[in-house]
């Protein structure tokens, strides 16, 4: 057996490349962020001063920021319910048919391959041109709205595009979980006279709980960081009506004011929000999983 020191040396040699890039581009930024959040660092001057918690005090009264937090929360909840509901339904019905499973799986996953930027522009075409065509020529008046210009409707538009984008991914995870449910349980429940709805909620659903935990975790994490689709679809507008937190931070840091220190303070607040919500979700759902 080699000595401890020798083992550690060879460990360090193998870990070094990963450790260096990790320190440079993740850990040091994460830790130094907490320091920059307490400075007045901006893009105009080289040096900056330590200002303590002043930035955090300013955040308290920053209305556009809290509006973006509220908007993001609303978006996260609606998007989570819509995309997970749709993904679960698709997964369940695709698995229930006899022929063509793999065709449907492939077909519904496709939108996930298209980046948020392209999806945003593509759907902008649908919302600003194609839907008007239906409204004008086919008399479908319910489509006749200012989808991009009116904040209420652009919220719906953003949710639709984002669910369209992420639904396929979630569906794949639900399908994999459903395939792990042994058909014997379902047959037994059928013999006991359960109907489709009962069997799904009482037998199948509890057995795919772990997939639900993963998918909700993923949706939360992605939702809070929503940027691409909103950036291209509405640009956060009209005004700042559809601005997400990520967009608000981006605007603060890279457009206009270039207040890096203040923007970093905002991103620290975002981190605390995301961290506590995902931690709560994991705790809560793991507890439920164990109860079963």
């Amino acid at each position: 057996m080699k000595s401890k020191a020798k083992q550690n040396l060879s460990l360090l040699l193998f870990v070094a490349p990963a450790l260096i890039v990790y320190l440079l581009f993740k850990l040091i930024p994460a830790i130094s962020g907490m320091f920059y959040a307490m400075t007045d660092w901006n893009g105009f001057y080289q040096d900056f001063q330590f200002v303590g918690f002043a930035n955090f005090g300013e955040i308290f009264t920053d209305k556009p920021f809290w509006h973006s937090v509220w908007f993001t929360l609303k978006f996260v909840v609606v998007n989570l319910l819509l995309s997970n509901g749709a993904a679960l339904a698709l997964a369940y019905y695709i698995e229930s048919i006899r022929k063509g499973k793999s065709f449907f799986r492939t077909a519904y996953y496709l939108p996930n391959m298209i980046s948020g930027v392209i999806s945003g522009y593509m759907w902008m075409f649908i919302f600003t041109k194609v839907l008007y065509y239906f409204a004008d020529n086919w008399g479908w008046a319910f489509l006749d709205h200012s989808w991009i210009g009116d904040p209420n409707y652009s919220f719906i538009a953003i949710v639709i595009v984002s669910a369209w984008n992420s639904c396929g991914y979630l569906m794949i995870i639900y399908i994999a979980a459903l395939q792990g449910v042994s058909p014997q349980y379902i047959e037994a429940a059928q013999l006991d006279g359960g109907n489709g709805w009962q069997i799904f909620w009482k037998v199948v659903f509890p057995m795919i709980r772990h997939a639900l935990t993963i998918c909700i975790f993923w949706s939360l994490n992605n939702g809070f960081q929503m940027f691409d689709t909103v950036y291209t679809l509405t640009g956060g507008g009209p005004g700042r009506a559809t601005q997400t937190v990520a967009l608000n931070i981006f605007e603060e840091a890279f457009q206009g004011n270039i207040r890096y220190g203040y923007a970093t303070a905002k991103s620290t607040v975002l981190f605390l929000i995301v961290f506590s919500i995902t931690l709560l979700q994991l705790r809560f759902m793991k507890m439920q999983e164990e109860e079963l």
């Binding site: 993740k26 962020g33 809070f224 937190v245 931070i249 840091a253 890096y260 991103s267 975002l270 981190f271």
Partner: peptide, 9 residues
């Protein structure tokens, strides 16, 4: 740690 939190540093 989400990306938007470390973006500026």
């Amino acid at each position: 740690i989400p990306f938007s939190s470390i973006m500026i540093p």
